[in-house]
Design a protein around this nucleic acid. Structure first.
Lengths: 237, 237
DNA sequence: ACTTACCTCACCATTTATGGGGAGGGTGAA
DNA sequence: TTCACCCTCCCCATAAATGGTGAGGTAAGT
């Protein structure tokens, strides 16, 4: 690992407030000598949090124009496992082209590289680097730093996570074996009657499990309970 | 990065069949001079695939006993973002203790380290290392290799992904914006009437979206559709 | 011994979801 | 332009889920 980035990991580990995230992104930008570094994070309750070097005008415009719903970077990363060079994305739609032009006008670089990382409970994070460079230059930059940046992204996430769920992991509700089995069957598309038959219990009993699980999960209805159980990783389908 | 692992990345990149995964795990085990290396992967359609150095007896027993549903490692990793040292997990339950003893009896080491990684469409992968060592020795081992192993895990996943969706990323079903919005609201526990009010459309229209999404997702009912949409990463609640 | 949680079963009335139709207007791509 | 897909609205009858309340037995932990 490049020694300058080695040191930078220490900087991340000392982040203790949201504001420090901002400083850390600035630090990384200056270290790599590029135009922008942005860290974007969606926590387990769907709250978005961003820290980075984009101008506040661009951030406001991005939110105002609801670019979240058309940004090919965000969209591409939602469907991907691996980091992505922006050039590889699909910019063919009219909306995407307009968005890219708008971004350029607001100081975002013409090149970009984004690392997506996912956690349990729908946690989703992006570390984005942007710069003005030729395709070749950018390719070389990525080749040089991609592995280091992966580590940096993970360190950022570790910090973000520590803010999200301070303390224990095992805090959420737990389901009994029969409740888990019942909810899992329902999540697989079984009706109550089918699920009861599968579990060889009366439909009445199955209802008790579902209701019990629903209460534990604080869910409004069965569908909500299934969604929460899935999000919390309590069941696997 | 340790040079021996540097070279190993090349080995991973040359994996071209499922069998080669097996060889790669053996290679990594010998390189690190530990007892076991296992790579476990759940693809976008829920199929499980494992490659590693565990004895076939243990693998068979694991499946036969349905340890998948009680393994604290698997369970812990589902709820976690970051790699986990097995010692940190909750082994207090009777089932977990019995499982651990059974694992020891089948040659699994007393120490372990597992890196969870998630992708879109519910893809979930684990890279597990296991060894017989004291807590201190294992701690030192992890401290030395954790960053390198993260890179290795990502390389494994890159390969696994290339087998999963050869070619296009856009393989699964997609939902229209309104369908996504409707399914998301239902997943959040809204009734059809509430969701329709929230979207400012008639309940009839909302039903059309739900039904349409249900058909696209090949789901038996609304709850199943929500579960599938969540698993596929099409919605976030 | 006592409490807590789990598993199993039952009835009531009401609300909600589902499956099957049909129809018109919009937008974007081939 | 035509085709496909999306958005919006409507009716009907039936099937399924929900909310509330109750009750008896087992198993584990304090």
């Amino acid at each position: 690992m490049a020694t300058e980035l080695q040191d930078f990991l220490e900087v991340i580990q000392q982040v203790d407030t949201f504001e420090r995230f901002q400083e850390a992104t600035v630090g990384l930008r200056d270290l790599l000598n590029i135009t922008h570094v942005v860290y974007h994070w969606v926590n387990s309750v769907g709250e978005r949090f961003g820290a980075g070097t984009y101008s506040s005008e661009w951030v406001d415009r991005y939110l105002e124009k609801d670019y979240l719903r058309m940004d090919p970077v965000l969209f591409g990363c939602f469907q991907r496992f691996t980091p992505v060079n922006w050039k590889q994305l699909d910019w063919s739609s009219k909306a995407a082209k307009a968005f890219f032009r708008d971004a350029l006008d607001h100081g975002v670089g013409n090149q970009g590289y984004t690392i997506p990382l996912r956690g349990p409970n729908g946690q989703f994070a992006l570390l984005t680097l942007s710069h003005n460079a030729t395709d070749d230059q950018w390719e070389r930059f990525i080749t040089r730093y991609e592995r280091d940046l992966m580590i940096v992204a993970h360190e950022f996430n570790k910090k973000a996570l520590s803010f999200d769920a301070p303390g224990d992991v095992q805090s959420g509700p737990t389901l009994s074996p029969r409740e888990t089995a019942a909810i899992t069957l329902i999540a697989k598309g079984f009706s109550r009657g089918q699920a009861a038959a599968e579990m060889r219990i009366s439909e009445h009993t199955l209802r008790v499990y579902i209701e019990s699980a629903r209460h534990k999960l604080g869910a409004m209805n069965t569908t909500h309970a299934v969604a929460r159980a899935l999000s919390l990783g309590l069941i696997i389908i």
